[in-house]
């Protein structure tokens, strides 16, 4: 049972990086790809229908960590205190940029929130790189440091590559000036998720030592597993509804 929940946790974490990775990457590329307001609108509109379905994978990671590996939850989050705080603040600032940028008229308002999207995405990428580096080091060293910063920049590059591929897939010959297939998008998702997958694999024994007892895991399984088809179905529906053939630019976007 603990192996099953370890698999669920790893799947959710890898899924978060593979999916939310392109949103963060596009946020990072917003000043580069979106030199005009119109290009920025197109880029944000391209990722907008996916964001809510993508970012929620990390909420699920935290939930499973608390429910199935409670001792690990406290140790990991507290051990990474400054990084978790910067990750949350960056996430909030990025999301605020998305939700608020179209809520008022005027180019200055929208441009300011576009910078919030960029700053939040940069904060997310750097925090994630540093957090993964700290976890790979067994939470022994300081959470913030020079090697961590290098990992953060690498993470940002991987997210940016994934975001660029997503934009070239959803908006062929759009702001990137390129077109990419679904296969290329899958490959860039693997690049974005590989560091997290490696850290998850390396942390597996540490996590298993901190798994909840069989009684708790049994209850979680009985209640959660029946929802799995609906969760998978909803995610698949998002991709079917908002894929590149859905005439991505036909409708004005809410974000």
């Amino acid at each position: 049972m603990d192996i099953l929940w370890l698999g669920v946790l790893a799947l959710l974490l890898i899924g978060y990086f593979a999916l939310e990775g392109f949103d963060i990457g596009l946020g990072l590329l917003l000043p580069v790809l979106g030199r005009t307001p119109r290009d920025r609108d197109r880029i944000v509109a391209a990722m907008a229908p996916f964001v809510l379905a993508n970012e929620v994978w990390l909420v699920a990671v935290a939930g499973v960590l608390f429910g199935a590996f409670p001792a690990a939850e406290g140790e990991a989050l507290f051990g990474l205190y400054p990084l978790v705080v910067s990750l949350l603040l960056s996430w909030i600032v990025r999301d605020a940029g998305l939700w608020f940028r179209r809520r008022l008229d005027g180019p200055a308002w929208r441009a300011a929130w576009d910078w919030a999207i960029f700053a939040g995405s940069a904060g997310l990428a750097l925090s994630w790189g540093m957090a993964l580096a700290a976890m790979a080091g067994g939470l022994s060293g300081p959470a913030v440091g020079l090697p961590g910063l290098g990992a953060g920049l690498l993470m940002a590059a991987a997210f940016a590559f994934h975001g660029w591929t997503f934009a070239s897939w959803r908006l062929p010959d759009g702001p990137t000036g390129a077109r990419r297939t679904g296969g290329a998008l899958l490959a860039s998702a693997c690049v974005a998720a590989a560091p997290a997958a490696a850290v998850a694999a390396a942390s597996a024994p540490w996590l298993l030592e901190r798994a909840a007892p069989a009684g708790t895991l049994g209850v979680l399984s009985v209640i959660i597993l029946p929802f799995t088809p609906l969760m998978v179905g909803a995610q698949v529906w998002v991709w079917r509804a908002f894929g590149p053939r859905s005439a991505a630019e036909r409708m004005p976007s809410f974000f």
């Binding site: 907008a48 229908p49 996916f50 964001v51 809510l52 379905a53 970012e55 929620v56 994978w57 909420v59 699920a60 935290a62 939930g63 499973v64 608390f66 429910g67 199935a68 409670p70 001792a71 939850e73 406290g74 909840a212 007892p213 708790t216 209850v219 979680l220 209640i223 959660i224 929802f227 609906l230 969760m231 909803a234 995610q235 529906w237 998002v238 509804a241 908002f242 409708m251 976007s253 809410f254």
Partner: peptide
């Protein structure tokens, strides 16, 4: 955590995960 974590884990997976996904579909599905 072995007790208190269970309802929170069920909330994130069995409720909020679906809520967020379907909200995205509703907002952008017009």
């Amino acid at each position: 955590g072995d007790v208190f974590g269970a309802p929170l884990a069920i909330e994130t997976l069995g409720a909020f995960f679906l809520e967020s996904t379907f909200l995205g579909l509703w907002i952008f599905g017009w």
